[in-house]
Design a protein around this nucleic acid. Structure first.
Lengths: 362, 362
DNA sequence: CTCCGAACTGAGACCGGTCTCACACTACAT
DNA sequence: ATGTAGTGTGAGACCGGTCTCAGTTCGGAG
């Protein structure tokens, strides 16, 4: 009967070894499950470990093996359901393969992203999954690649970076959705994204510092041009994200302009949410006064009146895919950088209508 | 000009020391920022570190200091927006205090929770924030407390466990919300939660294995009794969670019964979401045929027609609070276990109406 | 001019694991 | 009997940091 006094100093292999009356090496073999040990000794050590309530110190293990059994995730914002599910999916897959997950939030800011990466590398994660906040400053990502630490870019490719990528067919999806709006008769289209810009006006593609958004805008513009709409760039609205208030203001300004758009493509579900609320506040009916399509099939989009048409992204699959690519590489695979593009699915609901005549003019 | 060959073996203090022509101890002092070092040597070491692109190995640091600078979070389900925000808030607060976060998902299963805890303890996290999945099996949590590792229970208190708790006034909130429904004239009330039970029928309080739900049901029943409603237990529906299909089925069964409830209090926003959809599918109008109130002010609840009345829980604050309690303890504070109860707020929207006469009868 | 203490530095132990190696000891072929 | 392959074990180096402790150097006080 051993008394259960709480040990202030955690139990180590040496403690177990002493109790089992074997050498530290032998105890370590049993506890670590690696060397050849006789059945009898094994049992004795296990008993000792149990009696002392031994808990292996994974950190010490990692420092001597060089593997941490951990993968790092850096996302823009966990609050965003899109990333929430991605994290869920990545962590499910990771656990299935015996890995753990350290999570970091960049808040879509490069500096935070850099800091997070530094910490994760410091913790010697075996690999990284990152949604890069800004494709203009990527030196820190280059460093990761150079140091040969497996890296998977999630949702946002970066050209010229030799890392695996899991993303969706953003350009095509945006193109198709825009075409759908055009087919409904719209000529005054807007694309609204949460990107920040100073001043908050679209002046050119080089402003679009997250690659997925860039691809989407590209698809949007291409569709507009294909439809013979001129000056579609004017419809691009960088609504900003930082303080929520600012985004709402941008959106209300967009909707209250002299010639407001009759149809909007929203870059993510948070923006779409703001648009939906703004439309309601301003008394614009959907789909009569305004047609709306959003990226990502967020929960709320299916229960509004009318429900919102969306471009569904297979987030869960994306996460699984990303984790699997990463883990394969961690386990030694080293094919050239792969670029996985997963297909999106257009879900038509009730938010698309024909533009009103009076508004359709000009 | 040092050529930038990628070093397969990461750079260590010893490498830096060699290059700076000082002892390992001195280099470590500079790099770790702890001992007295002359300005000149400091610069030399820093230069060497930079040239070699030295990245401190936090694991090694942790194993010798005994502190990991990391806190572990175990939540039921990150996909759930409630937990998403909690995680966000905890990780924000943690970073502010120089801590990192390791995340684990229990999927609301005790076994997974145990496993997660084991891993986190293995990684020597400095403290833990946990939403216990089941208050009937808590030996593993007891172990944590016994080992003196700081632990904060999030959202779900466990009686008799000497750990800090951050939760909301669940009983009061449920009581008040129920009273509101009663005041609207309802006599056939239901409380729907995602808990699993075999068979899926409510037989007694001891079935309610998550403490927050227990408190809420308690409040619900108390309110019903106060209103003189008899047999309110019959209104308690354990809809289950595991396969989503099962939950929906339970809810549809509840709504299609002979004497369906005229008002429902939903235990979380996911359940409410299912109820909302089921009501729509079955052609029950809200609030005419059915009044609905949900715990947690999820995004979607404000944009439905009608919008849903909710019991708003200050999740972000709860997270911050939990993280702060934990960090205080990690930093040495050791007051007796505290129980922080944060107030909820009832947000009345359009989902509460009077019961129809014909349905109100009996 | 000596002595004392403060400031700096290096040697080496230590944290808790892994892992290499040498040394039994057995067992079986020669 | 000897060779030899194989198994189990212990001693101790190692991983990459921290930290103690014993010098060394230097300035200023006595």
């Amino acid at each position: 009967m051993d008394r259960k006094t709480s040990p202030p100093r955690p139990v180590t292999v040496a403690d177990v070894a002493r109790r089992a009356e074997v050498s530290k090496a032998t105890a370590a073999r049993v506890l670590g499950g690696y060397g050849p040990v006789s059945e009898e000794v094994k049992l004795r050590v296990q008993a000792a470990a149990k009696a002392l309530d031994y808990r292996p110190n994974e950190l010490a293990r990692s420092v001597s093996t060089g593997k941490s059994g951990t993968i790092g995730i850096v996302v823009g914002d966990i609050e965003n359901a899109f990333f929430g599910i991605a994290v869920r999916s990545i962590s499910d897959t990771a656990h299935r393969h015996g890995f753990n997950v350290i999570l970091a939030n960049s808040g879509e800011e490069v500096e935070a992203e850099k800091a997070a990466l530094k910490v994760l590398v410091g913790k010697r994660v075996d690999g990284l999954i990152v949604t890069p906040a800004d494709n203009r400053t990527i030196a820190h990502l280059r460093d990761i690649v150079r140091s040969r630490r497996p890296l998977v870019l999630f949702d946002r490719p970066i050209e010229g970076l030799a890392a695996d990528v899991v993303a969706t067919d953003d350009r095509d999806a945006a193109f198709a959705a825009t075409m759908r709006l055009v087919a409904a008769g719209h000529r005054r289209l807007a694309y609204v994204t949460a990107l920040n810009a100073e001043p908050p006006v679209f002046t050119g593609m080089e402003q679009l510092y997250t690659s997925s958004v860039k691809a989407r805008v590209d698809g949007f513009l291409a569709a507009c041009r294909a439809a013979g709409i001129d000056g579609p760039e004017r419809g691009i609205c960088l609504a900003g994200s930082a303080p929520a208030g600012q985004q709402r203001a941008s959106i209300e300004r967009l909707l209250s302009g002299e010639t407001p758009p009759t149809a909007i493509l929203a870059s993510d579900s948070l923006v779409a949410f703001e648009i939906f609320k703004a439309a309601r506040t301003l008394g614009r009916g959907i789909p009569d006064d305004l047609s709306l399509v959003s990226f990502y099939d967020a929960e709320w989009t299916s229960v509004t009146t009318p429900p919102i048409s969306v471009i569904d992204q297979p987030v869960y699959d994306m996460g699984t895919q990303a984790a699997e690519l990463l883990i394969a590489r961690i386990n030694g695979a080293s094919p050239p950088a792969r670029h996985c593009v997963l297909p999106t699915r257009f879900i038509e609901r009730g938010s698309i209508g024909a533009p009103r005549r009076m508004m359709a003019a000009i």
